[in-house]
């Protein structure tokens, strides 16, 4: 068992979900106004807004579980890199449109089956947030898988580009299914889910979409990242420096 105790595990579990949504929403927000077509500006903004909305509910809930009076903004703006528990996939830089949509696809294909199961969590608050998230995640997956298929089965250039995106992003998917003490404790408590079962669904979605996209499934790599334990690469620090700048520069100000 973890040394955090069950309530600490519970809070960390919720925070992981919250942070992955927040960090990915922040990345998608960088696109708005710069996408390949107006429809894609709107589509990426839609996904970003949904993820940000979920993040806000989850952060508020994580703050309540923690019981130290931290609200969504205290958690978003005043935590440091190592305290962020998002999956490393979410923080990967946008790259080109193919990189962004491949990242989104791998994420959505995980989030949908995860939320479907969390919707029957023994934690009613989490179950309610997940139930709402299911509808959004289903739409996000349709959008991202549609683009993976079009890019994969588009031109030789787009095929090569998005295959490269998948290769680069693949190592960051391992942690999504690699249950640690917190995941196990939450599963036993009926709050969390069986990540092995989520993986089965994810593999199915990925196999089906990559086949339609005429793309190859990348091989697994030995090095795994664990953003959910607060172990990040070099990108998150820059993202937070930008995101948190005003709150850090004006401590205690209200906006």
């Amino acid at each position: 068992m973890s040394t955090r105790g069950d309530s600490g595990n519970h809070g960390a579990f919720v925070l992981r979900l919250a942070d992955s949504n927040l960090v990915l929403a922040q990345r998608l927000g960088e696109w708005i106004g710069h996408a390949p077509a107006l429809e894609e500006d709107l589509g990426l903004a839609n996904t970003a807004l949904d993820l940000l909305g979920q993040a806000r509910l989850l952060l508020t809930y994580a703050g309540a579980l923690e019981g130290r009076g931290r609200d969504e903004d205290a958690l978003a703006y005043l935590r440091e890199e190592g305290e962020y528990l998002n999956c490393a996939l979410a923080e990967q830089p946008n790259g080109d449109f193919g990189d962004t949509l491949a990242r989104q696809f791998l994420f959505d294909a995980w989030q949908l089956p995860l939320y479907e199961r969390l919707a029957s969590s023994r934690d009613p608050q989490l179950a309610a947030i997940a139930a709402r998230g299911v509808k959004e995640a289903r739409y996000h997956l349709r959008y991202s898988s549609g683009w993976v298929v079009r890019l994969g089965d588009g031109t030789a250039e787009s095929h090569g580009r998005v295959q490269g995106s998948l290769e680069r992003l693949w190592p960051y998917t391992a942690e999504l299914f690699d249950a640690d003490d917190i995941d196990r404790a939450m599963q036993v408590a009926g709050i969390g889910v069986d990540l092995g079962a989520v993986r089965v669904d994810w593999e199915q979605t990925v196999a089906a979409v990559l086949a339609e996209a005429t793309l190859a499934r990348p091989g697994d790599r030995p090095w795994h990242w664990y953003g959910k334990r607060g172990e990040h690469g070099e990108h998150l620090g820059h993202m937070l420096a930008q995101m948190q700048a005003l709150q850090r520069a004006h401590p205690g100000a209200r906006w």
């Binding site: 996408a35 390949p36 890019l151 588009g154 787009s158």
Partner: peptide, 8 residues
């Protein structure tokens, strides 16, 4: 930057 995406 979006040219290759629209072409695809």
């Amino acid at each position: 930057n979006g040219g290759w995406v629209r072409e695809a």
